[in-house]
Computed example of a mutant assay.
Amino acid sequence: MEQKHGPSGPAEGETMTHDTTEPSGPARTRARLRGSGPWAALPFLLALAGYAVALALWWERLPDPVATHFSGVDGRADGWTSRTGTAVTGVVLLVVAGAVWTAFVRRPALAGAWATAGFLGALPALMLRANLDATGPDPATLPLGHLVAGAAVAGLAALAGWAVGRLVVEEERPGAPAPEGEPYERLPLGPGEVAGWSRHTGSAALTVLGAGLVLAGPVVLTAGWWPVAPLLVAVGAAGLGLARVRVTADRRGLTVAPAVTGRPRVRIPLDEIEGADARDVRAVAGFGGWGYRVRAHRTALVLRSGEALVVRRAGGREFAVTVPDARTAAALLNTLAARHGKV
């Protein structure tokens, strides 16, 4: 039987807040950009806009089918796709790659995001240009020099991403811990009383991203890019697996597991918990996106922005998971851990 108790604290209608204002000083005097996610998405949006413009301008000059695979140093065509299929594939690749980078990128990797966008934007455009005014698929060629040109565009984009990354500041902390010397909030339980807390929580962003990747697999496969298709499906399936989880706090400690499969799961026993509290987090600005995030001395499962349960482990490491009613779960874990002499 599961009991659920609310911790003592602010009256109804009040909320607990934590000051996450960054300190002022010389280090903050120059302009800064907030969060990696939007700046990882920007180059893919620009590449997508450029690809759409190229399609609009050259559509009537493209043969049907379009040469989409080339081999040899001279780049002779040996594979073709319908004109509509070519357009859809280019858009899907940019959208999927942009979504993945936006969801998982951190500031040091922004150069990689921009380089990827530069290459995926340049190469399809060069391929379309090679097909212009061809009377059939055979005359189209894509010499090796075009790949070099695509790599050069990627290099320039990487430099731009590196410059943008120098201006990005991220909130490494999901909130402020309990003030030093102030005890963690606890849930009142009698000496022989036991209690458990459990909630399902999900992520619309991970659901959409995972479903998009899974659906993109067959589309990319029909275009002849068979090595990419299984990767897209595998990554999408993993994202869907993490899109909805069950968070449980009980005598075993904290358990976070996928709601459908139950594996893989994260379990933190009570004897490893030094304290728990609830904090407010922002998925993009605070963690760079959604999913399982790894930071120095900190890991998190970020499914949305908002309330998160943060557990401080032995050695100072922290684990966070975004879940409603995190304050009750934190107070219960503190009470149960106190029985083990940890809090």
Rank of each mutant, 00 (worst) to 15 (best):
S71Y: 13
F44P: 02
W226T: 12
P188M: 05
P258C: 09
V235I: 15
V260W: 12
T89W: 04
D19G: 06
A204H: 12
D74A: 11
G136F: 11
M127F: 11
Y184G: 02
K342P: 00
A134D: 15
G165C: 05
F44T: 09
V91N: 00
W225P: 00
L206S: 10
T201C: 13
G224V: 08
I273C: 01
A149M: 15
A125N: 10
T102P: 03
V96M: 15
F119H: 03
V66S: 11
P230L: 05
V323C: 07
R295G: 03
V256Q: 00
R279W: 04
E182K: 06
V153N: 05
A113L: 08
G289I: 03
R339V: 07
A134S: 14
V96D: 02
E170D: 15
I273L: 10
P38I: 03
V343T: 14
A229N: 03
H146K: 04
T299N: 06
A283S: 05
F119E: 04
W290V: 13
A296T: 11
R327H: 09
A308F: 00
K342I: 02
L144C: 01
A296E: 03
R313K: 13
R173Y: 08
W197R: 00
V247M: 09
L110S: 13
R265L: 15
A163Q: 11
E274D: 06
A54C: 07
W59L: 00
A158P: 07
V220G: 03
F44G: 02
L57R: 12
P23H: 10
S71D: 12
A67V: 10
M16S: 12
F287E: 08
R32P: 07
A152M: 08
G253H: 01
M127E: 08
A27L: 13
V245T: 04
A178S: 03
P188A: 12
T141I: 12
W59K: 02
H5D: 01
R28P: 01
